[in-house]
Structures are given as structure tokens and as C-alpha cells.
Amino acid sequence: MKNCLRTLRAERGWSQADLAQKLGVSRQSVNAIETGRFDPSLPLAFKLSKLFELPIEAIFSE
């Protein structure tokens, strides 16, 4: 699954550690999701959606 997490994060000037802290996960998790090597669960996808104020399908795509 592809995502535009890195772009969204950069637009807000957040580091991976900042985003990880906001989500309550490790920085490694954010890195793995950003690089597309780990697909987040639905609860985490909803957290991202809420945090970026965007629908899930705007962040993730097939």
C-alpha cells in the first residue's frame, strides 16, 4: 500500500519522532509505514486520518 505520509509530515514540519509521539508509537513504526514496508492497522490509520484531518483514502492508496 502506498501513502503520502512523508509529504504530509514534511508540510507540517514534523520529524518522524514528532509524528511518532503524536500517534503513541515508535519512530521505527513511522519510518516503516512511510517507506511502505509496514501497513498500519485500521485504528492507527484512523489516528493518522484524524491527526492530518484528511480521509484515510487521501493518505493511503493501493
Binding site: 503513541g24 508509537v25 521505527q28 516503516a32 509505514i33
Partner: peptide, 8 residues
């Protein structure tokens, strides 16, 4: 463990 990536 709250971090699903670490859990995996």
C-alpha cells in the same frame, strides 16, 4: 504493547 509495529 501499544505499538503494533514492535508487536509484529
Amino acid at each position: 504493547e501499544p505499538d503494533e509495529f514492535i508487536r509484529a
